[in-house]
């Protein structure tokens, strides 16, 4: 038995050495890229916003023949994206891996749940923006976000806010940013309840929570039917797709603040320059295609292309903004 194991090990060693010998040359110059499939990673389970974004990108790139190699989508869920971020650290310098991220990339680092941040990736481009929305049930006493803020100013724990992300991540923070701008003190005392995947809208419909902080496109069906009332959207101006155009922005209601749920693509840390250049060029082309336009329209996304340098600057600035809010609720870990 022992000998068998030994023999198998030897075989393994031989295979490994051969792999090194044959593969060694190809990795050095890499004049032609891409020649092998590129893994497109959604750092969450199938069905969420990240999953939808990366699948759309892969589909558009393949349909328009901009990328000649297969782009298989892989889901690496967990830790609000932190699990995949840790995985990307093990792939330093790889050229065959791209992940989609959005505000939680910064938030999970600032709130201490991940030691890694956007600085431990290679930002390639920002692609779209989705905005947040604050919605209530149709029989709610609130008809504007200002009323909610008034109540919160009197007693910060009088309104129960629900959302899908964990405390200290997106749905929570987007509401706090607005509350802070509206002049609510004691952000810490605002009640925020995190719900399991997908059950948030059901909770606000059933009257178990007062207000749901969510993505604008996540509750479109219920807004259309009038079961939910949109109090505010978080963009600089209204998104014009169907029913969403009837929801006023926070700005219109005197809260001078914007929250963007930006989504962009990121390579692993130290992604080789030829790969970075290739993707910057390709993504710039992709956002000009009619296929991309159509996909954005259907999903209710606002196009928001930023090339890598601009994106990096945007990330630096956004990171500071989030820091301020997290600091105020005492969740900043650093």
């Amino acid at each position: 038995m022992k000998q068998t194991v030994k023999a198998v090990f030897l075989l393994g060693l031989v295979c490994l050495t051969t792999a090194f010998l044959f593969g060694g040359g190809a990795g050095e110059k890499a004049p032609k890229y891409p020649t092998k499939p590129i893994d497109m990673i959604a750092p969450a389970g199938a069905g969420g916003g990240w999953d939808l974004t990366i699948r759309t990108v892969a589909k558009v790139l393949t349909d328009t023949k901009l990328v000649p190699v297969p782009l298989p989508v892989t889901n690496k869920p967990g830790g609000g994206g932190g699990v995949n971020l840790a995985y990307m650290q093990t792939k330093k310098g790889a050229d065959n891996l791209i992940a989609v991220y959005s505000p939680p990339l910064l938030l999970i680092n600032l709130n201490g749940s991940s030691p890694y941040s956007y600085k431990n990736t290679t930002p390639l481009a920002a692609l779209i923006t989705d905005y947040g929305a604050f919605v209530v049930a149709k029989n709610s006493k609130y008809t504007s976000i200002a009323q909610v803020m008034e109540d919160l100013k009197k007693d910060p724990s009088s309104v129960v806010i629900g959302g899908t992300s964990a405390v200290g991540s997106m749905d929570h923070i987007q509401f706090l940013i607005m509350a802070r701008a509206a002049g609510v003190k004691d952000l810490k005392k605002i009640k925020y309840v995190s719900f399991q995947e997908g059950s948030g809208p059901a909770q606000v419909l059933g009257g178990h929570i007062h207000l749901l902080s969510t993505g604008l496109s996540d509750v479109r069906g219920l807004l259309q039917s009038g079961d939910l009332r949109g109090l505010a959207q978080t963009g600089p101006e209204r998104v014009t797709t169907d029913v969403l155009k009837d929801i006023p922005t926070c700005k219109e209601q005197g809260i001078n603040e914007v929250f963007r749920n930006w989504r962009g693509l990121f390579g692993p840390p130290e992604m080789p320059e030829y790969a970075v250049n290739y993707w910057r060029k390709t993504l710039a082309e992709m956002v000009k295609t009619p296929e991309w336009d159509a996909a954005c329209k259907q999903n209710g996304w606002t196009k928001n292309y930023m090339d890598a340098p601009d994106f990096m600057a945007f990330l630096d600035k956004t990171n500071e903004d989030y820091k301020a809010v997290l600091g105020e609720i005492g969740m900043l870990k650093q």
Partner: peptide
């Protein structure tokens, strides 16, 4: 269409 881990170098 699910990519399992690839062999190094050979891809």
């Amino acid at each position: 269409n699910i990519q399992l881990p690839r062999m190094p170098f050979l891809g």
